[in-house]
């Protein structure tokens, strides 16, 4: 049988976050969002509702964008979790980060981590998305500042940069 948890009490597990194994113990009612922010100090992941209604808390789990506010942390053992903190390569920003910064994809910045992580999953799977496809993929990330247009433009630009980088490598 897998993990079980009882009331009250804590579970103790190892999470793999941004490629690093992290041991953590927490009360089993905690979601991945709470554990990342409160127990691992990774506050780059934001929250706007904690009910699955805004997308601010999106992180990648095994490569797919999920809502950390509705993911039980206890169910994340052994899965690869990626957050905004792990995106840059040392001092070098990811093309999505560059593009969001340069093209106005981020204003207040609050939706930005969730939006960028969602866009990363898109580009990992579809290197040449149309603007319609970008909107479809980003339709679960509310933003109150940008009106989305510059977010879409940022993702388009980053897609171009990623493709260019691939070609250079090849």
């Amino acid at each position: 049988m897998g993990i079980t948890a009882t009331v009250p009490g804590k579970v103790h597990i190892t999470l793999k976050v941004n490629g690093e194994e992290m041991e953590v113990s927490f009360a089993p009612y905690k979601t991945l969002l709470e554990v990342l922010r409160e127990d691992l100090g990774l506050t780059g992941t934001k929250h706007g509702c904690e009910l699955g209604e805004c997308g601010a808390c999106a992180v990648l789990v095994d490569g797919a964008p999920l809502l950390s506010c509705l993911t039980l942390a206890i169910e994340c053992e052994g899965r690869a979790i990626e957050t905004i903190e792990g995106l840059a390569n040392g001092p070098e920003l990811h093309p999505l980060q560059e593009a969001f910064a340069d093209l106005g994809g981020s204003q207040c910045g609050y939706c930005t981590p969730g939006a960028i992580m969602t866009a990363k999953a898109l580009l990992d799977n579809e290197p040449e998305p149309s603007s319609q496809r970008i909107k479809e993929a980003m339709a679960g990330n509310l933003c109150r500042c940008t009106g989305y247009q510059q977010i879409v433009e940022s993702v388009e630009k980053a897609a171009g940069c990623c493709r260019h980088a691939e070609r250079v490598k090849a």
């Binding site: 922010r37 409160e38 100090g41 990774l42 506050t43 780059g44 992941t45 934001k46 929250h47 957050t83 905004i84 903190e85 995106l87 840059a88 920003l93 999505l96 980060q97 560059e98 969001f100 910064a101 340069d102 994809g105 981020s106 207040c108 910045g109 609050y110 930005t112 981590p113 960028i116």
Partner: peptide, 23 residues
Amino acid sequence: KSRRRVDARAKVTGLARFADDLT
């Protein structure tokens, strides 16, 4: 000019500190 705004880097890296990020 169209420039990267001065606070952009913090925002795209998740380093920008909002009130609930403080402990």
